[in-house]
């Protein structure tokens, strides 16, 4: 049954050095505040899993939290490179980063298989490209009924999944609205804990019968963090701050300016409220 906790307490209790952790949110509802709390708590040697690493993983990688990244598209959407990710891959700074690279279709299928309790995912993919040459977890199998050659990847089963949602009720049931990405799959695939930060805690979710709701008995912890997805967005609460994404390009290009920004905005930032509160969003 979901426990109501502070974000600080939830990260302290459930995220350990060496864990595989998936902070999901497909361009929307990206759990920035939770990622920054992991940075503040100084977690190390994490295997970070995420389809679209985005700025939050750039920050975590640049601050040395990760030893491995499992991903399918690692850029700053509409802007360009993730410079901290590139520096880690190209130069090993601040530490070498092993990468396991997939396509979106593969990762989406792999989360789905993880949620479904299957050992692997099967799909029609990786045809005619070089990704199977560089990623050892991509294999091919023949369909036992038609003989068609299909791609297979192992199910994603992170130790901990962390996502952001609009609302939880007081019992810890969670509602997601808008672009829902792979958050439900990631939470159900998690081996040890599913942590959810939310914009608000309400008496009743007012969810339609087919809404995307995680029942409280599959949620480990709920933390109220208004603005917790900023500078990504929360449908119905605040918009994506595209200018922050553009500004990140210059901030993150240089190691010193990156470290100075992190020191000011994250390390010395508010410890138990959101990144968004820090930026006057919440």
């Amino acid at each position: 049954m979901a426990k109501m906790m502070s974000l600080q307490a939830a990260i302290a209790e459930y995220v350990r050095d060496g864990d595989s952790v998936a902070l999901e949110g497909f361009t929307h509802l990206i759990p920035f505040a939770a990622g920054q709390e992991i940075i503040r708590q100084g977690r190390k040697d994490l295997t970070l899993i995420r389809m679209t690493p985005d700025l939050i993983y750039d920050q975590m990688i640049g601050m040395g939290c990760a030893s491995k990244l499992v991903f399918s598209w690692g850029g700053n959407p509409g802007v360009g490179s993730l410079h901290r990710l590139r520096d880690a891959v190209e130069n090993g700074w601040p530490r070498p980063l092993e990468i396991e690279e997939h396509s979106h279709a593969a990762m989406a299928n792999a989360y789905d298989a993880g949620a479904a309790g299957l050992p692997f995912a099967v799909f029609r993919g990786y045809i005619g490209n070089h990704l199977p040459k560089v990623t050892s977890t991509i294999k091919f199998i023949d369909c036992p009924f038609t003989g068609e050659r299909l791609a297979a990847v192992p199910a994603l089963r992170p130790d901990v999944a962390i996502v952001h949602a609009q609302k939880a009720d007081r019992a810890g049931n969670v509602l997601f609205e808008g672009i829902v990405g792979v958050q439900k799959q990631a939470c159900l695939a998690a081996r040890r804990a599913a942590i959810v930060t939310v914009e608000e805690i309400v008496d009743t979710l007012d969810a339609g019968p087919n809404a995307v709701v995680l029942p409280n008995w599959v949620v480990t912890a709920v933390a109220k963090v208004p603005g917790g997805a900023y500078p990504s967005y929360a449908h119905g609460y605040y918009q994506r701050d595209n200018s922050s994404y553009k500004q990140w390009d210059a901030i993150s290009r240089d190691r010193d300016s990156f470290l100075a920004w992190m020191q000011e905005h994250v390390i010395q930032g508010p410890t138990d409220t959101a990144a968004g509160a820090n930026h006057g969003v919440a």
Binding site: T52, W73, G75, S103, Y126, N129
Partner: peptide
Amino acid sequence: RLPGGGGAP
């Protein structure tokens, strides 16, 4: 290092 494949493959 470019962003990677995303949905394109």
